[in-house]
């Protein structure tokens, strides 16, 4: 009895957020199956996985930044810019497509590095820096195009709708990114330094940990993931559009925090984020099945977020 209790305490204390999220996923699924016979089908499950790809990739990038104790609010504009550049540069040409993909990946990484650099050297809080760079990127996007632009070669939408072993291609790719990030965070020294930096920036620096390098890597990765997400978005949407990423700025943060990563940094992980993404996508899908108007959907979303995050207790807090 006591051992069960202690396991429970251990779980809720150490992994409370994650357990809550998995529990909520389970409850929502059960609820959905009861409410609609079309909800629990294989094709609907595949739908949800397929739909969650861009959000998952962006949120995985955001997770690293948040573990350092920072935040990236430029991510939405980065996705928009990358999406218009991708389809604009490609313009239907399969060869240019590869050039465009490399370009946006490099650009994404570079923007991340600029974000990190500005917050390190100007000593401005990342929230403000990335808000500023976000505005600048949006302006550049509008300079480049004010309308949806370009197109992708035929068959590019297979990236969004294709299947590998019956699973959506995007979902498989998401898992790959997830595993790589998880291994990096746990097994590679630099990955572990990300936690140390977020936990106690001054302490980490005193111990001689490469704080700047850590920040460059985290923000660079986040920017690059925004570019990757834009590839899947363009595959799904057919062309890049100047406001396509706008929603990701805030939606990319919710799964991270719901998944148990603290905004104050130092704790959390990508598994929670991934589950958070699936929870959010599942919730959106389920609300469609309920024929609830958006008005009530917003109320439900707000409540679920509050429930999910107030279950576990944070030891310290910051922005």
């Amino acid at each position: 009895m006591t051992s069960v209790a202690s396991i429970f305490t251990f779980l809720t204390k150490r992994r409370g957020g994650l357990l809550t999220v998995i529990g909520l996923i389970f409850v929502l699924t059960l609820f959905g199956v009861i409410v609609s016979d079309k909800f629990g089908t294989y094709s609907n499950a595949v739908n949800i996985l397929e739909q969650s790809t861009p959000l998952a990739i962006v949120s995985l990038g955001q997770t690293l930044v948040i573990i350092t104790g920072g935040i990236d609010l430029s991510i939405g504009s980065m996705v928009s810019l990358a999406s218009v550049l991708l389809s604009g540069l490609t313009a239907g040409d399969p060869v240019m497509m590869y050039v465009a993909i490399v370009t946006i990946l490099v650009l994404g990484g570079l923007v991340g590095i600029i974000n990190a650099g500005a917050s390190i050297y100007l000593r401005v809080h990342p929230l403000i820096v990335t808000l500023g760079t976000g505005a600048i990127l949006q302006g550049i996007t509008l300079l480049y195009t004010q309308t949806p632009i370009g197109k992708m070669p035929k068959g590019f939408d297979e990236l969004a709708y294709g299947r590998v072993l019956g699973l959506p291609l995007g979902a498989v790719f998401t898992i790959v990114v997830f595993v790589v990030t998880a291994v990096f965070l746990r097994k590679v020294p630099l990955g572990r330094y990300i936690y140390a930096t977020g936990d106690d920036a001054v302490g980490a620096q005193l111990m001689g940990l490469p704080r700047r390098k850590v920040l460059f890597v985290a923000y660079g990765f986040c920017g690059m993931m925004a570019a990757v997400a834009s590839i899947f978005l363009v595959a799904r949407l057919g062309a890049g559009q100047p406001y396509t990423g706008q929603n990701f700025t805030l939606t990319s943060i919710t799964p991270v925090v719901v998944g148990g990563t603290l905004l104050s940094g130092g704790r959390g992980g990508v598994i929670g984020t991934l589950m958070g993404v699936y929870l959010v996508s599942l919730l959106n899908n389920l609300l469609n099945f309920l024929s609830l108007s958006t008005h009530y959907q917003l109320i439900v979303q707000g409540l679920i977020v509050i429930i999910a995050v107030s279950v576990y207790v944070e030891n310290k807090r910051k922005v």
């Binding site: 609907n44 739908n47 397929e50 739909q51 799904r236 949407l237 559009q241 929603n247 899908n285 469609n288």
Partner: peptide, 12 residues
């Protein structure tokens, strides 16, 4: 107002 969500909605 989210095109990506609308694609999902149509799928649903």
């Amino acid at each position: 107002d989210d095109p990506a969500k609308q694609v999902s909605d149509v799928q649903d």
